[in-house]
Design a protein around this nucleic acid. Sequence first.
DNA 1: AATGTCATGTAACTAGTTACATGATTTA
DNA 2: TAAATCATGTAACTAGTTACATGACATT
Lengths: 185, 185
Amino acid sequence: MNSNSLLGFALMGLIFEQPMSGYDLRKVFTTTAMGSFSDSPGAIYPALARLEANGMIHGTVEESASLRKRRVFQITHTGFEALKAWLFKPVTRDDIVRGIGNLMLRFAFMDRTVGEARTIEFLRGFADEIEAYLPGLYQFLEAHGNGMPLSSRLALECGIQEYEMRLRWVKASAAQYEERKRNQP
Amino acid sequence: MNSNSLLGFALMGLIFEQPMSGYDLRKVFTTTAMGSFSDSPGAIYPALARLEANGMIHGTVEESASLRKRRVFQITHTGFEALKAWLFKPVTRDDIVRGIGNLMLRFAFMDRTVGEARTIEFLRGFADEIEAYLPGLYQFLEAHGNGMPLSSRLALECGIQEYEMRLRWVKASAAQYEERKRNQP
DNA sequence: AATGTCATGTAACTAGTTACATGATTTA
DNA sequence: TAAATCATGTAACTAGTTACATGACATT
């Protein structure tokens, strides 16, 4: 099957939260904290076209009296199922090493799509994978740290600190979701 | 001119530190903390071929009695100049928002290439850009945090914490380089 | 004899980058 | 009326992904 790129999922997640045009989506990437995505039309319009060709979203031309006509996209049933399937994927070691950004994006979209229970499960998996990965980094630092150039060692230490920070954040976030779950049975 | 990709610079930096074969480079990506790069031959061998075609590196076939012959790459003068030019580039806002990984890689290679003074300058620029970017994130959180879904807000807060952590690291690293500079005049 | 590791590569596909193109409406 | 913003797209290029192919030597 045609699987979506990260940009594709980002677009679908945003469109799910609120139907939007390509131009609106570009603005989200330029003006909000989602600046890690490219706001170039050469990335977004082809991505939207692909999603539509795959039946994930559907665009309707909206003719306003004053402005130029715009195509507003909505997520389809198929698209929503694909989005949920993506959000439900288990957290892997590879996600931790090469795709932390993907995990953060998935988490950002979870609230209104998969519910507390699954969100907590996701955060548990996230924490587990970091906890499984970190000892190896410390071991590597122990074993090779002294022989490394200072800047390389500092860069490695920064990587470790990043994982430590994220682990703290994952646990604090899980706690917040646990509490919200308790308060709304 | 043909400019190199991040993978290209990673390969050049490693080859500069020690001449290596494609296979060695793959092993670096699988076994060390540089796991964010792909270790697939389909990425590395073409990248090496491009670098060689551009005169950045040069491979020599090494015939050992026992093992299969391997092509060991060395960096060329042109390549080293290109590497330094990359390391010397000023830190921009875009580097902070979309390419923190690039900055970290550049830093990791600085020690034996550009010297303390330039490394400190780089870290200052790094800190400045984070300090210029952070207030906007806090403002955004202040303005939209309450209206956001919980998971989105938490994701944003994680982003902020990451920048805060990195800022502390940058300052601590700069201090270490300052000290090293003082001790070796 | 079979499996695992060393070692280098190619081919088809995909998605993103940069740059260009167009035209309407709004503001200065 | 000139410039900025709204709005959508295309074309050429580039680099990375996945999967395949090959073969020597080492180990079990």
